[in-house]
Simulated scan of single mutants.
Amino acid sequence: MKLYRIRSVIRRHTYEVIHNANHITYMVYWPVVNILVWGFFTLYLRHGDALKPGVVSCLLGAVILWGLFNTFQRDMAVGFLEELWSRNLVSLFASPLSVSEYVTGLIVVTLAKAMVGLSVGALIAWLFYHYDMFPTLPMLLPFILNLVLFAVAMGIMVTGLIFRYTTKFQAMAWSFAGILMPLSCVFYPLNSLPGFLRPIASILPTTQSFEGMREVIERGAFSASHFRLGFGLNVIYFIFAIFFFRWMFEAARSRGLLVKME
């Protein structure tokens, strides 16, 4: 991989972010709306003494971290879709740019955008609802890392599907995280799921991350077991995502779909 090519991809998507108001909506508007809605809900719960303060903090923390995962997974796929919408795909891959260089540059830009959303959400939660996640941030960082790695793997897989099946699968860019949400135990512990769903949920790195997050917020303890299991699962999913993407890309190229995408 050539660093200057990766920098070019980063520059291209940075210009897109600066000059396209939709990206500001994705980065700032929706995180603010989600925090406000869930913040008002936690105020209602506090007023009625329906939940302990620790559980209320877990709800706000879960909203912030799920927003990070959702943003990363979505923007990975949407970044590629923008190349299709602008009819720039053929120009990209007619150049010496490799697929790995393009994906690396896209990951860097997507990470920066996700961090903006995370920071905005955390700031709103602190200013309006007195929930400060920054003291626990060092212990949360390993679980944030696992969320980012899984989001990268899922984004790569969705992008591979779009390569192979063109824009017929573009809705997956926005909906795939929603499919995983019920099984990721974002707002409730794993043991609250029906017994037949728990084995499925337990093999998702998102579930391990949110289980670990609750340990940090409720007990102030870092769960090494949840981190190790989530990281190990991420390694498996990431390797699978790379092979899956290569398979989809080669299938699309052999069928001449790269020049037919709309």
Rank of each mutant, 00 (worst) to 15 (best):
N146C: 13
S209W: 05
Y188F: 15
L65V: 02
L140N: 07
V33D: 07
Y129F: 15
V63H: 05
S98W: 06
N88F: 07
L60P: 06
L59N: 04
R253Y: 10
I24N: 03
L45V: 04
P182A: 09
L111F: 13
I35Y: 06
S223F: 03
V90H: 11
P205V: 12
C58A: 10
R219P: 00
P194H: 10
L258Y: 01
V37E: 02
G212F: 04
I200L: 15
Y4K: 11
K260Q: 15
V90I: 13
G230C: 05
T167K: 09
F93V: 06
V158F: 04
E101A: 09
E250R: 14
V63P: 03
R7Q: 11
I179S: 05
V216Q: 06
L97R: 08
A173L: 07
W174T: 08
F169K: 02
S192Q: 13
A151W: 02
W126Q: 12
L65T: 01
L84V: 15
V33P: 05
S223A: 13
R253C: 05
Y29Q: 10
A50S: 10
L204R: 12
L59Y: 14
T207S: 14
Y237K: 03
Q170K: 08
F40E: 11
T207K: 09
L140F: 06
M76V: 06
F169V: 13
H19R: 15
S100L: 08
A112E: 04
A241R: 00
F72H: 04
L51Y: 12
Y102L: 09
V32C: 11
S57C: 00
P142Y: 10
N146Q: 08
T104C: 11
G212S: 03
N22P: 00
F169L: 15
G232C: 08
V158M: 02
K2C: 01
Y29G: 11
F143T: 07
G220E: 11
N34H: 11
R219C: 00
I10K: 00
W85Q: 12
L84Q: 12
S225R: 10
T166G: 07
I236C: 08
L51V: 09
A251H: 01
L258G: 07
L180F: 13
P53G: 06
G67M: 05
V152Y: 00
G121N: 09
F40W: 12
I162Q: 07
E262D: 12
Y188V: 09
V63D: 02
L204I: 12
A112F: 09
A177W: 07
A114Y: 03
L258A: 08
N191M: 10
P53F: 05
A94L: 13
I124G: 00
I10W: 10
S98A: 11
F243Y: 08
F163D: 04
M27G: 04
W38Y: 15
S57I: 06
M261R: 02
V33K: 05
V216I: 14
D132V: 03
F240Q: 03
M181I: 04
M133G: 14
S119N: 02
A201E: 11
L36T: 08
P142L: 12
T104W: 02
N20M: 10
A122K: 04
Y15A: 14
G256Q: 10
P96E: 13
E250L: 12
L258K: 05
S95V: 07
L84C: 11
F238Y: 01
L233I: 06
I236R: 00
G232P: 01
P53W: 05
T14D: 06
F169N: 02
A62C: 04
D132W: 07
M157P: 03
N146H: 01
L81Y: 04
